[in-house]
């Protein structure tokens, strides 16, 4: 038994929910990016290479 028929209202709400979802994902990306830049002092690749160097050196 189907619970309910797909209504135009659901389509409109789907669009709104997708928009909110994308905003939340963008927010996570921004916070992550800001954290990386602040923690590494802006030199993300250098910090990553430093990590590898430490790992290689034991």
């Amino acid at each position: 038994m189907s619970i309910s028929k797909q209504h135009d209202l659901h389509k409109r709400r789907f669009g709104r929910n997708v928009g909110v979802g994308l905003l939340l994902v963008s927010f996570i990306v921004i916070v992550f990016g800001m954290t990386m830049v602040k923690v590494t002092g802006g030199d993300i690749s250098g910090a990553l290479q430093g990590d590898r160097g430490e790992q290689d050196g034991g």
Partner: peptide, 9 residues
């Protein structure tokens, strides 16, 4: 054409 009270993004 959107119905009142049903805002879109």
């Amino acid at each position: 054409t959107t119905q009142p009270g049903e805002a879109q993004f």
